[in-house]
Design a protein around this nucleic acid. Structure first.
Lengths: 247, 247
DNA sequence: TCAAAAGTGTTTCGCGTACACCCATGA
DNA sequence: TCATGGGTGTACGCGAAACACTTTTGA
């Protein structure tokens, strides 16, 4: 039926279109502000190819399922989390990127649509199913990953840095209330040590006016107690879609 | 063979994975500096679905062909051009975005990986094959397009604006030598009238030091003749990968 | 000699940067 | 009382924005 349809309609019917399986690979980042570490979620592969190697949480897209649905599904299988940010990253689709292609006599191709996620570390609860390995890995201590997943993570890290600079993702990933140091730590761990002076970061952010001071103080060990702030979505609204630099 | 492989390896074998055809849709932009118009390349569809409707130049990915190859192939079929910029845009893959899915009893899905291209208008020669319609359309006078192509173009236009602000794509698309007014016109037509004052634009660009004055003057009608400039890729090198605002 | 287009210069204002310094707490 | 971390203030310089002005051509 499909064949006939193609044949009558297109002069290219004989050109042998590729059949695809579509995989979704999730690059899931989180920031452990307590330890100043940028983490990424890896799972141990339970099947061939790359059995026993670390990889990104991934799945193949099912019938009737959108790409984003698939991404959420795989995420929900690995982690329980309330606050997260998710967006499409990039589509890798060269031939021979997946060893399964070679084994397959029908010439089925495997295409990977990668998604980028940032989750709140505090309430991210890993789902250990007893069998499969699952773990947060510091981004700077990655093992050799399956497929082209190292490349995907590299790309994802770039995206994360941009997002942080130009959009308010940070507030999706911080607790409801947070100190300005928390915010600063977050930026520092993701962007590197020398992106901005604390006091300047502070005054710039406060001047924008969408951080509401709850006046509640919190003391963490020695030192003066810090004010807890809340992200005010309404006050931020005017900045929405406008280019805005947080650095 | 494939089935067996999946069945032994994965507990999800029964979950009915989707079979995909992968299409590549090209959002090809060009700027007619003479008429100050931002154009996009459309083709008239010669087959169902959406027969006789305008659409983006598109193709289905063939066996052994990478996504980017497919994008270049479809571009080369429609247009002869030497200077262009091309990059992946976004992947649209929800179920039911393509009417062919419904007609197909096997549940084949159609996924669209869109590419963004910017071509030099002066030497872009449309390939008219006598049958199919092909034309440059002003972006602000688009007809109703096939599939979700209007949405893709909207997304592509956003990308174009960003690219122009943060990267030197403009020089891929201008002639070898150009006047600063040419450059300014280009920016104006893409970004809108009020993005910057001409004189400020001018001094900012010149101060960066990668525009070489050829000292050759060119006169266009009345008015003082303008200097022709050349983009100096070597002098630009230090700025590569660094955030840089052209506005 | 005037309009049109190219190119130069100037003034103002705000913001990023780099600091120095004050404040409140725990040990 | 001192180390520690939170918070405030200031002085400098660059750059964006707005706009006035000069230069060189064609008509």
């Amino acid at each position: 039926m499909r064949r006939t349809y193609k044949k009558t309609a297109s002069p290219l019917a004989g050109e042998s279109l590729a059949d695809f399986r579509v995989g979704v690979d999730n690059a899931i980042f989180s920031v452990d502000t307590a330890q100043n570490r940028l983490l990424v979620l890896l799972v141990m592969r339970q099947e061939e190819p790359f059995l026993g190697q670390w990889s990104l949480p991934a799945t193949l897209v099912r019938q009737g399922e959108s790409l984003e649905d698939a991404s959420y599904r795989i995420l929900a299988e690995k982690i329980r989390v309330r606050n997260l940010y998710l967006e499409q990253l990039y589509t890798f689709g060269g031939p021979d990127r997946d060893p399964r292609e070679a084994e397959d006599s029908y010439g089925v191709r495997y295409l990977s649509v990668s998604y980028f996620a940032l989750v709140r570390f505090a309430d991210a609860e890993l789902i250990a199913d007893g069998v499969s390995g699952i773990a947060w890995y510091p981004l700077d201590q990655l093992p050799q990953l399956a497929f082209d997943h190292n490349k995907i993570l590299e790309y994802g890290h770039g995206r994360l840095k941009n997002k942080l600079e130009y959009s308010p993702v940070a507030f999706d990933v911080l607790p409801e209330v947070f100190t300005l140091s928390d915010l600063y730590q977050l930026y520092t761990t993701v962007l590197g040590e020398n992106f901005s002076d604390y006091s300047n970061f502070r005054s710039r952010l406060l001047k924008l006016g969408f951080l509401a001071d709850t006046k509640v103080k919190v003391s963490r060990g020695a030192g003066r107690p810090a004010s807890l702030y809340r992200f005010d979505a309404e006050a931020f609204a005017p900045f929405k879609d406008k280019p805005l630099v947080f650095i």
